[in-house]
Design a protein around this nucleic acid. Structure first.
Lengths: 341, 341
DNA sequence: GATGCCACCTAATCCGCATTAGGTAGAGGA
DNA sequence: TCCTCTACCTAATGCGGATTAGGTGGCATC
């Protein structure tokens, strides 16, 4: 049976009057084709062209162990219907860099039909590609663990230290970015800056606070940190802070943006405006980032591109690349922070 | 060389004291394993379990003859940086339905910032999927023609009649939708409705006008059509139409939205408001659709899903499916159309 | 004219699994 | 005892391409 009408190397070989291995050598290109007569190469290339030959990625991978396909697996729907297209910038970066590196993208889809453990199935299919990018908040640890046990190159987009050095990733440098935001506030003249963070201990939250502290430290200021669940951020509390001499607030953007939202709401209710009454900065990209908000931007597009570069290097067998990369986030001065008044 | 340390069927076979094909039969499950002794099955299953066997998807697919991959090729960047994410809803539908059908998505990347990849080359590579979806405004006719000459199942998203029956597609039924919008206006009491369209003769524009005319016809009204390049839509002209008794305007949404935008601008300048002074409806989805605009919605998500269904049927060899499908667009009553005043 | 040497290409295999045509052993019948 | 069936399993092969170890013919050399 010949399942597809696609031409194979054997067809080219017949047409060109050579053997299949010769075709493979020539189409394989470069160094391997060195010892082959120009004339033969021309014939073969012409035949391949004429037949519209395209190598079968499956066979290629089976035989050679690679097929120029980069897998992309998101642990939720790749194209989220609900959430603001948070993944989109990643995809843009991934697409661009993949094209630049000569890879096509193989998007693996967590089938909703498989129910129970959808990831197990897909994580197996993932091995179709030469390597795979992962994206998404909730990472299924056991399946990932099994995948890491294989030799498939993998890169996670986003910081994930659960697996230590075993899981390469490209993340954002929240620490440096947080410190930069604080320095910006200090340069504006703020001396009492309060960090309002959520109770969540996610690595990103930890990093942001570390960044805040580092920035304060570098400026010789005392770091004050408050944890909130959102509800306890009352207008009175805000006013009290202000009366005590606090001139700037820093919050963090998370998946829920609880602290950020609560702060905005409380300020509104208290009749406090930014930056007139208080300065405000936010560490991270809130989902509905108000224009002019002081903080930093997560370079999602660049992260996507960097992840592709890292992955292709891993595929190429490069053992020297740093397996954990943190991208710099650009400071966004914005308009919610100004000199204290 | 044994590239991966994973166990294969041969290993199981050795451990269970049977042959590799036997293992394949048993693990292949169900019907094929019918003629195999229970005892043997147990041994094999136990061995597989013990070794932690997981079938290699590559080899499986090579042997099975198809790879469960749907290609997706957009004639522009798949993830446009600039334009409002017009393709996004298509992608959502495509992803969902692909998952439901058990296919993964292979995204072919056309142009990139670096190194142009001519369509010809990519259209060749496209053939590595079991079938391919196409998306995008500008379709390279000669290359497409060559691709259609092969037996690769293909579905275009969007109406494209250049290739007649050779190119299956899933489009939107602009004619019916246009007629429905006009009927809506007529029901509101409008009798003199003016269609303001662009000069472009794209099939979609032709359809929209046809829809307008059909709607008017069904309501026993005379169709009046004006072509514009945008610049000639002066405030005076709008006022003149109104003074002559026109109570409703209909425009079309295109890639540039020239007519639509010009009309809004001219109305603003003329101090005419919708629906107070004139009623307005737009055929299609303008890029920045103002909330409440009367018109119809293009069911992009459903189109994506329908395209996947059509493609999978074609792949399965179904020769009876209608190769051209037009999806119904929902009327959006909106607020820019009201009874004439 | 035998030998050596290249330059070019092909035969043979493998990758891991699926499939089909056979083969073997044991049971049952004559 | 010989033959025929089943019941079970295996040998052989293919999928499409990569790789390696040869093989062949022509030309130069002694």
């Amino acid at each position: 049976m010949r399942p597809s009408g696609r031409p194979r190397q054997a067809d080219i070989a017949r047409l060109a009057g050579v053997s299949q291995p010769t075709v493979s050598l020539i189409l394989g290109g470069g160094a391997a084709a060195m010892g082959i007569a120009e004339e033969t190469q021309r014939k073969v290339m012409a035949a391949a062209e004429q037949l519209g030959y395209v190598p079968d990625p499956i066979a290629t991978r089976l035989a050679a162990g690679q097929n120029n396909l980069l897998g992309l697996y998101t642990f939720t729907s790749t194209f989220p219907t609900e959430m603001s297209h948070a993944y989109y910038p990643f995809l843009v970066g991934i697409e661009e860099e993949s094209a630049a590196q000569g890879y096509d993208l193989l998007m693996f889809i967590a089938s909703s039909v498989t129910g129970e453990r959808p990831h197990a199935q897909v994580l197996n299919r993932v091995r179709l590609a030469d390597g795979c990018l992962f994206l998404g908040r909730h990472l299924p640890v056991p399946e990932m663990d099994r995948l890491l046990a294989t030799d498939l190159p993998v890169v996670y987009i986003g910081r994930h230290d659960e697996f230590g050095d075993r899981l390469p990733y490209v993340g954002a440098d929240y620490v440096s970015a947080g410190a930069a935001v604080v320095r910006h506030l200090a340069e504006l003249g703020h001396e009492r800056v309060l960090y309002v963070r959520e109770a969540d201990e996610a690595i990103t939250s930890v990093d942001r606070e570390a960044g805040f502290r580092r920035g304060m430290d570098e400026c010789g200021l005392a770091a004050e940190v408050v944890r909130t669940d959102g509800a306890d951020l009352t207008p009175e509390r805000l006013r009290a802070w202000r009366d005590q001499g606090v001139t700037a607030l820093v919050t963090e953007a998370t998946d829920t943006d609880a602290a950020h939202r609560a702060l905005l709401a409380a300020a509104e209710e208290a009749g406090l405006r930014f930056p007139d009454d208080l300065s405000l900065a936010t560490l991270g990209d809130p989902a509905d980032r108000p224009a002019g908000l002081t903080g930093f931007a997560v370079p999602r597009r660049e992260m996507g591109a960097a992840a592709v570069r890292l992955l292709t290097k891993l595929i190429a067998g490069d053992r020297t690349v740093p397996r954990h990369q943190l991208m710099t986030c650009e400071l966004e001065p914005g308009e919610t922070a100004a000199p204290p008044r």
